[in-house]
Simulated scan of single mutants.
Amino acid sequence: MATAAELPRRAARPSMADVARHAGVSSQTVSRVSNGHRNVDATTRQKVVESMRTLGYRPNGAARALKSGHFNTIGVIMFTLETFGNIRTLDAIAQEAAKANYAVTLIPLPGRTSRRVSGAYNRLSEAAVDGVVIIFEAHLLDDAEFALPPGIPVVVIDSNAGSGYPVVDTDQALGARQATEHLLALGHRKVWHIAGPRTSFSASHRVESWQRTLRDGGVTPPRVLYGDWSTESGYRHGLTLGRREDVTAIFAANDQMALGAMRALHELGRDIPGDVSVVGFDDMEEAHSFWPPLTTVRQDFAEVGRLSIKKLLARVTGAGPDGNDRTIVPTELIVRGSTGPGPAAVPVPPAHAPRPRRRTD
């Protein structure tokens, strides 16, 4: 084994002074070029750039950041990477941040407590970020005792931000109303709902809007069936609902639970949409490939990501207002083949009559 003295020495990293000597200019000129200042003539700038390339010099970004107070990094705190919505939102945030020349530092949280969020926020503060996006998907900020330490701009997605925290979110209530009204307009006398977790902010808003829409239509809401966003929970509740002949319409709080419910209905021999219509929420890429293709509520995750970064960077640069402002992104109902007329719209045919043809669009 080679001794320490025998090991090859790592080549010293070229310094700003090395570049200055190579280019025949002052260190101040090299500093101005590396920091993007324009008060250097084109010929001199080109000489410095060529010397940097020749020597393999890289400007010390950390030192520049400490000096300027800007790190060009955005922190993201989120509870889980398992759900479709969180993955799409994070992707949109990363893309929009990159367009503004910002990197993203992610801290996923295994627990759902205000203490963990505060701890993650403090860790990001120490990691040198210019601002933080927090994707809660929970009611933590409803807790009066919960507060983030001051000093770093924050934008919240998918929660009630309370006082002082700006919010960007999908219009959860609008999406649930669009889904429920669509099924009622098709003639279904009652719409059942497979909801997300009780702790989820977005799920609770969809439940409230679904119930309100049914009551506005003169329908008493049935009991809520709570899932956990997974296809398995949708399948489990789909078996329960599919065994009831009076169930003709199901609104699932996300596409994955809708897929699980559709599998259960198929196994029970219930035709979709001939016997039961199904609506999801999200419009994941595969929704059009379900059988039949899934009617669903489309969320614009790219717009949520774009607006959250835009709002955060406005606060980072001092161009945005402080305080509690809320930006809501509208949803869109995408009608496909999983929904059809209910018993209130089409007379029930005699037992010997042929069944309606299944829609394939």
Rank of each mutant, 00 (worst) to 15 (best):
A63I: 10
F281L: 04
V40R: 07
P273H: 00
D143K: 03
L109E: 11
A176I: 02
R306P: 05
R355D: 06
N35L: 02
I107T: 14
E285S: 15
R198W: 10
S68W: 02
I93N: 04
K190H: 06
R64D: 07
D283S: 07
A253W: 11
A12V: 15
A195P: 02
N254L: 06
P293N: 03
A203M: 12
A11M: 12
S51Q: 02
A173E: 10
T89W: 04
A138C: 12
R198G: 09
T240V: 10
D91F: 09
I134M: 12
S159W: 00
R32D: 01
E285A: 15
E50I: 09
T360H: 09
D228F: 04
A12S: 14
L106F: 10
G340A: 08
K310C: 10
E82S: 13
F201A: 08
F301I: 08
V279D: 04
M262K: 01
R236P: 08
N160L: 08
M284F: 03
S230F: 00
P150K: 11
R263P: 03
E82W: 10
Y102P: 04
P14C: 11
N324H: 08
R306C: 12
G61W: 06
T220D: 15
T331D: 10
P108H: 01
N60C: 13
V154E: 09
